[in-house]
Deep mutational scan, measured.
Amino acid sequence: DVEPGKFYKGVVTRIEKYGAFINLNEQVRGLLRPRDMISLRAENLNVGDEIIVQAIDVRPEKREIDFKYIP
């Protein structure tokens, strides 16, 4: 289970104008929005990159997770 405030290692699987999709594993995926990329620009991300993200909002009923990148 993903808990708000905890840090996780994930892999960038898709990049859109509104953010990057980060997979923690095959069943868990969330969104890293540009406003939550402190000191990281979306254009510096590539599909396949491994990054550490913090879960900031977890909505299990919608199967949605928002992440924040903190260097």
Rank of each mutant, 00 (worst) to 15 (best):
K6M: 09
D57N: 15
E26N: 13
R33G: 05
I70S: 09
V58T: 06
G10I: 05
L24V: 10
I65A: 04
L40R: 05
I51M: 04
S39D: 14
V2K: 03
D49L: 08
R29N: 07
I70R: 06
V47I: 13
D1G: 13
K9Q: 07
E16M: 14
P34Q: 15
K6W: 05
S39I: 11
L31D: 01
F21E: 04
I38H: 13
F21D: 01
K17M: 08
I15G: 00
F67I: 04
L24C: 07
P60D: 06
K68P: 03
V2Q: 03
I52L: 10
L24R: 00
R35Y: 07
A42S: 11
F21C: 08
E64H: 11
G48L: 02
P4N: 08
K62N: 08
V2I: 15
A20S: 04
T13L: 03
R59H: 05
V47F: 02
K62S: 11
Y8M: 01
V28W: 15
L45N: 00
G5S: 04
V12W: 01
K68N: 04
D66E: 09
P4M: 12
V58P: 04
R41C: 12
E3S: 11
E43G: 12
N46H: 15
I15W: 03
D57E: 14
V58A: 04
L24S: 01
L32G: 02
P60W: 13
K62F: 09
N23K: 14
L45W: 04
M37R: 03
I52V: 13
R29Y: 11
G48S: 01
V58Y: 09
Y69T: 04
V58W: 07
A55E: 02
E64G: 07
G19F: 10
N44A: 13
L31M: 08
D66P: 02
A55H: 02
E43N: 12
N44I: 09
D57A: 15
K62C: 11
L32Y: 03
G10K: 01
V11W: 12
G10Y: 03
V58Q: 04
E3I: 15
R35Q: 11
G48K: 01
S39N: 14
A55K: 02
I56M: 12
E3G: 04
I56N: 02
R35C: 10
N25S: 14
A42E: 07
L24H: 01
K6P: 02
A20W: 12
G10Q: 00
L31W: 06
F67A: 03
I65P: 04
D49K: 04
L45R: 02
E16Y: 12
N23T: 13
F21K: 01
V53H: 00
I15Q: 01
F67G: 03
G5E: 03
V12P: 00
P4A: 12
P4F: 08
K6T: 06
A42I: 15
V28N: 04
I51T: 00
E3N: 06
P4R: 13
S39T: 11
L45I: 12
E61A: 11
Y18K: 06
E50K: 12
I22K: 00
E64S: 07
E43R: 12
V11Y: 11
E43A: 13
L45C: 07
L31R: 06
I22G: 01
V12Q: 00
R63I: 06
E3T: 13
V53K: 00
L31Q: 03
R33S: 06
I51G: 00
V58K: 04
R41A: 11
V2S: 03
I38K: 11
N25K: 06
Y8P: 00
E64M: 11
V2D: 03
L40K: 06
D36V: 07
R29C: 13
P34M: 14
E43Q: 11
G5W: 06
V28A: 04
F21N: 01
M37Y: 06
I65M: 04
L45K: 05
V12N: 00
A42F: 15
L24G: 00
Y8R: 01
R41I: 10
K17G: 07
I52R: 05
V53Q: 00
D1M: 14
K68M: 11
V12A: 00
V47Q: 02
G30D: 02
Y69M: 07
G10W: 15
I22E: 01
I65W: 09
D57W: 09
Y18W: 15
G30H: 02
L40N: 06
K17I: 12
V58D: 02
F7R: 05
N46R: 15
Y8L: 01
I38D: 11
T13G: 04
V47D: 01
E61P: 05
E43F: 13
I70N: 09
D49M: 14
Y18S: 05
R14Y: 05
G19T: 08
G10N: 01
E64Y: 14
I56Q: 05
D36C: 12
Y8F: 03
Q27H: 15
I38Q: 12
A42V: 15
E64N: 07
I15S: 01
V11F: 08
Y8H: 00
R63M: 12
R29M: 13
V11P: 00
E16W: 14
P71G: 14
G48H: 01
M37K: 03
G30F: 08
R14C: 07
R35A: 10
Y18R: 07
A20Y: 13
K9L: 11
P71H: 09
K68V: 09
Y18M: 07
V58F: 07
Y18A: 06
K17N: 09
R33M: 06
N44F: 12
E61M: 08
R63Y: 10
L32S: 02
E64P: 03
E50A: 10
Y69R: 03
E16V: 13
I38E: 11
Q27R: 14
P71E: 11
I51Q: 00
Y8I: 01
I51P: 00
E43C: 14
E64T: 08
R59N: 07
S39M: 14
P71K: 12
P60Q: 08
I22S: 00
F67L: 09
G10S: 01
R41G: 12
Y8W: 02
R14A: 11
P71Y: 09
N23M: 14
Y8D: 00
L40S: 06
Y8K: 00
I15C: 05
